[in-house]
């Protein structure tokens, strides 16, 4: 699939932002006043920044409000609702923490649950697509949620939670890659099932057009897979290894910031691969993956 920068930025940053909101909703860290304001500004900047970035890939962003209408069937519509609800509920909870030093814990729990539900709905947009075997399955929500929780713990300064969560997210990432590499072959969809042609080996002889088209650019984006092995190593080192090392060192705000930055860079690499390496079955009609 085409690794559109707007989608990579959106899913990475909003995942981090909602992960941070989940921890803030649980009352971690328990700061109030200016310090709490700083945490909530970061969380809202990441979540809203991601949502704004996602609008850039729309053909008609002026009609974006219509996306709230089909929550009965569409995960994209559910994501829109859950994101707005989370921002509202966490906003009220945040006001209590920042302005009055109050802890309205039930509201915080609700906000945390909504934040995680938002990340889940984002992941289900991809996991629900049977046409992309690498994404289709329960590993995709697990991958997104584990990353969001690890990043959220890191941003919330919860060193005790961040270390195991980063390790968990790294483990899930490895399983996602191992499972994903054989997903298309296991799906049972082949050029023979795509064309229904029997009685011999089927080979794509001639494409329908001499140039490229929307389908090839959007869904058979082979050029993005060029540095896959290197990007996987970078993901593991930057996204998980370095932040964990930095967390183990004696605490210092600058080291914490560095841990967050390397983590975000690593997740950008991971998210690039998530899209670039996903093979859409339409590629079979073109003899490509």
């Amino acid at each position: 699939m085409h690794p559109a920068p707007s989608i990579i930025v959106f899913t990475t940053l909003s995942g981090l932002g909602f992960g941070l909101m989940a921890f803030l909703g649980l009352g971690l860290p328990g700061s109030t006043g200016w310090v709490a304001l700083a945490f909530y500004v970061i969380a809202y900047a990441l979540a809203c920044g991601g949502l704004v970035a996602s609008a850039f890939h729309l053909g008609h962003p002026e009609r974006a409000l219509r996306a709230f209408s089909q929550w009965r069937s569409s995960w994209l519509s559910r994501e829109a609702w859950l994101a707005v609800l989370t921002l509202l509920v966490v906003g009220i909870f945040a006001a209590g923490r920042v302005f009055w030093g109050q802890l309205w814990q039930p509201l915080g729990w609700l906000g945390a649950a909504l934040a995680l539900a938002t990340v889940y709905s984002t992941s289900m947009i991809y996991a629900s697509l049977a046409a992309i075997p690498r994404w289709h399955g329960p590993l995709t929500p697990l991958h997104f949620l584990s990353l969001s929780l690890a990043g959220g713990a890191l941003l919330a300064g919860q060193v005790g939670a961040a270390l195991p969560l980063l390790a968990l997210a790294a483990g899930v990432q490895l399983v996602v890659w191992m499972q994903g590499d054989g997903a298309l072959a296991r799906s049972g969809t082949t050029m023979a099932s795509a064309t229904g042609l029997q009685g011999g080996a089927v080979r794509a002889f001639e494409p329908p057009h001499t140039g490229t088209n929307y389908l090839l650019r959007e869904m058979v984006h082979i050029v993005g897979r060029k540095h896959a092995a290197r990007l996987r190593v970078l993901t593991l080192i930057l996204g998980f290894g370095l932040p964990m090392v930095l967390l183990v060192l004696p605490f210092n705000h600058w080291l914490g910031l560095l841990a967050v930055l390397t983590h975000v860079l690593g997740i950008f690499a991971s998210r690039w691969l998530f899209f670039a390496q996903a093979e859409h079955v339409v590629g079979l009609y073109y003899g490509k993956r």
Partner: peptide, 21 residues
């Protein structure tokens, strides 16, 4: 009513949908 998000084209296994350039 189409916002041009392209998700339907991703969902179609046959490549039957194309976003008009």
């Amino acid at each position: 009513a189409c916002i041009g998000c392209g998700l339907c084209a991703w969902a179609c296994p046959y490549g039957a949908r194309e976003l008009d350039p």
